[in-house]
């Protein structure tokens, strides 16, 4: 371990804002230094709690976080917030506009925006590793907001201890709630924009469907982030579930999933990328483009 790395690790352990900011970049950019750092801090990890917030675009995920964060900072010393927003598939750039909703001035909150870098499923491909980074820092209560997602984007579940799914009114009828995917990953369902008249009937339909299809196992709430309605109830539910998690085997079970999924992401992110680079270097891409290589033969050669 060199001196530079030692100061990085110390900075992370102490919660140095500047150093954590830089360390996240190293990991996000896929630099070897970032993963060497993760290797060093892996044994220093402590228990963390990840609250996943997901839902389609514009339902009010960031605005909800803005409200709930005020309560969480009363309860916990330090909070980490990771906000995912989509990258442009055309330019590779991104407009990261989540944190403009977060009005907290609390110095104990560390907020980072993350572009999905065209990775699907609504999360940044390096999100699992950044969560590991945070688990060695003082920011061990973490809120993750996905990019606006669709019915099949369920990856967040693998990296959260509790997943909140936010839906806005008029989002569908009970057939939507019968489908697999989003409904199945939610620990708490939240109907947003409760200050609109149209919210109540939607909330009732959703609640009714959940009571029939899920035996009432998923709590359903209606909130309004603009007037504060229902925020306290959701907060209390989060704390109740959090307590239940830590006082049972559930936390360990979720951690098992998170560890394994994180490893699979490492394989995808680093190993696959290396493989692609290798094949490209060998000049096979050109031949593939021109149809000179049987791609199925090629892949069979690689995996055999």
């Amino acid at each position: 371990m060199n001196l530079n790395q030692k100061s990085l690790i110390d900075g992370i352990l102490e919660g140095d804002r500047l150093i954590i900011g830089k360390a996240i970049s190293l990991i996000e950019n896929g630099e070897k230094e970032g993963f060497t750092l993760l290797k060093e801090i892996y044994p220093l990890k402590k228990d963390i709690f990840v609250l996943g917030i997901t839902g389609p675009l514009g339902v009010g995920k960031s605005t909800f976080i803005d409200k709930i964060i005020e309560k969480l900072t009363d309860e916990f010393d330090k909070i980490g917030v990771l906000l995912c927003d989509p990258s442009s598939p055309i330019s590779g750039g991104a407009f990261l506009g989540d944190r403009l909703r977060l009005k907290t001035k609390n110095e104990n909150v560390f907020i980072r925006s993350m572009a999905t870098r065209t990775f699907p499923y609504g999360i940044s491909p390096s999100l699992p590793f950044i969560i590991d980074l945070f688990s060695a820092s003082p920011y061990r209560n973490i809120i993750v907001e996905t990019a606006g997602i669709g019915q099949g984007d369920v990856s967040i579940k693998n990296f959260s201890h509790l997943t909140l799914v936010l839906l806005s009114p008029l989002l569908g009828d009970e057939i939507q709630f019968l489908k697999g995917g989003l409904m199945e990953i939610s620990d708490i369902l939240i109907v947003t924009k409760g200050d609109y008249d149209i919210a109540e009937p939607f909330y009732k339909t959703l609640k009714n469907s959940i009571s029939i299809f899920y035996n009432d196992l998923i709590p359903v709430y209606m909130i309004s982030s603009s007037n504060g309605f229902g925020i306290d109830d959701v907060y209390n539910e989060i704390m109740k579930k959090r307590l239940d998690l830590f006082s049972s085997d559930k936390y360990l079970e979720r951690e098992k999933i998170r560890r394994l999924e994180t490893f699979k992401y490492l394989l995808k992110e680093l190993y696959t990328k290396k493989m692609i680079e290798k094949i490209e270097k060998e000049g096979d891409f050109k031949e593939i483009e021109e149809g000179k290589i049987n791609i199925y033969q090629k892949i069979l050669d690689i995996i055999s």
Binding site: R17, S91, L96
Partner: peptide
């Protein structure tokens, strides 16, 4: 700037210099 490949974080309006600097640091 997004359209030419930059990752842009927008602070929103009415921010204090302190908030802007905190963001610049956290976002690296």
């Amino acid at each position: 700037l997004m359209e030419v490949g930059y990752e842009v974080i927008y602070t929103g309006i009415r921010r204090t210099p302190e908030e802007i600097v905190k963001m610049a640091i956290e976002e690296d």
